[in-house]
Design a protein around this nucleic acid. Structure first.
Lengths: 242, 242
DNA sequence: ATTTGTTAAATTGTCAACAAACGAGTTTTA
DNA sequence: TAAAACTCGTTTGTTGACAATTTAACAAAT
């Protein structure tokens, strides 16, 4: 992993040094869930986690409440807790919300983004294009590059709510989606082409168009993911029949 | 009933009996903050609250983490906690996010809402219109009616994420905005007229139009609120000069 | 054999005490 | 007199123990 990747990862996941045990275990648990280390839908107990992470239940419970708030855990009072299960329906919901919020981000970015940042974003795309052309781009890099692009747009909206919702809540689950089925942007060069169109619209300060293009970009991405999931499901069904 | 249903039930019907102390104090604190009982920006201490509500700090801290997650409290580790301060800038951010999410809700509702629910929604507007014509409508009623309309649209989207975001996170802060300056829909009859147009678009199954109208409705509402805030600010400034 | 009732183990909810970090006020020193 | 350092009190972070509730396991009865 390059230094640059590390940097962007840090920025996106805002995992600055945790100052408190609760925060620390929150981050560790979050990563464990997203990476699949903890299986989706698996039941977890407070005592088990407390022993595993070597802390008492107090801070752990606070971390759990936060994970609950960003929907990585599902809890039923006095009954138990499970890791969220990402069904196709939930993923569609997430992509729909993303479409609305990132569309709005692109609209705002078209008005507010500085000329300097637009150029920087444009050259970022050049780099991505390069790494794909030369086949240097690993799947991982493509994925991170994609997130980086979307994160910059969100940040340019200058709306802290949008930024937080997208980067701390939705992105975590999105990463989980991708982890789940090893998805990578289906047609990276096409994705970058779409990114370019969006940047062009922003450069022209055409808010309306920027929003439209971003929404199409995301709903298109969902269609591809949906097809992948269906194929996967079909494969599984066949397997069961055999 | 599925796990998901249980979760949404908890979020939506927060009038249901809280089963745990943490939940109970979460609700009480939430109401105290929204109603203005706790001043915006006021500093609060764990020990003080624990004594005030007669519970120990354990459950209280969990409630605090949840309030932090929905942005009613702002915390700085090892330094203290304050009630959020709703500046004009933050309110604009909230309205912007609302515009994106409720616009998407209206779009989805146009496709998914049942004929029966559309009729029900339409007759709800009749009732509101009636109560305004006869001047029976208190400000409170108008406000609740307004919320009811928006909530029904959100629910009709059938997207649990949209529903939760709008009704549990944004909605709380919106109530706080209104509480703050005793705002009431500036022109109730005009608001209802706009609501009618939205319902008509949904009835025609015109998703595009439904979204457009909802977004205009909300951005229009923000402009009115913004003007009210400015006038208020000017009045204060004059007062200080005198 | 299925269902119902009871009991025990496991798990969550709650509490009070302890430890660490921060801020304010006071003292000491240049 | 002013600045630096040091206490002391306050507030947050953490822990382990205790109480309440649920799950399950097992026995008994129809």
């Amino acid at each position: 992993m390059s230094v640059r990747d590390l940097h962007s990862r840090k920025v996106i996941c805002d995992s600055s040094e945790p100052q408190t045990l609760s925060e620390q275990v929150f981050n560790e648990l979050k990563d464990a869930i997203i990476s699949g280390e903890l299986d989706q839908g698996s039941k977890i107990t407070e005592d088990g986690l407390a022993k595993q992470y070597g802390i008492s239940r107090g801070p752990l419970r606070e971390a759990i409440r936060r994970l609950e708030a960003i929907r990585l855990l599902v809890r039923i009072p006095r009954a138990g807790m499970r890791v969220v299960t990402l069904t196709s329906e939930i993923m569609e919901e997430i992509y729909t919300v993303r479409e609305a919020l990132e569309g709005m981000s692109a609209r705002l970015a078209a008005t507010k983004m500085s000329d300097k940042d637009i150029e920087s974003l444009s050259s970022l795309l050049d780099k991505h294009q390069n790494s794909i052309d030369k086949s240097q781009g690993t799947k991982y890099f493509q994925r991170e590059g994609n997130l980086d692009f979307h994160y910059r747009i969100a940040k340019a909206s200058n709306n802290q709510w949008l930024i937080d919702l997208l980067s701390s809540e939705l992105y975590q689950l999105l990463r989980m989606c991708r982890q789940r089925s090893g998805q990578t942007p289906a047609r990276p060069s096409k994705a970058i082409q779409e990114h370019r169109l969006i940047v062009e619209a922003i450069r022209e300060r055409d808010a309306e168009l920027a929003e439209l293009l971003m929404r199409r970009h995301i709903s298109g991405a969902w269609k591809i993911v949906k097809n992948l999931l269906n194929e996967e499901q079909n494969a599984k069904n066949l397997e069961e029949q055999a």
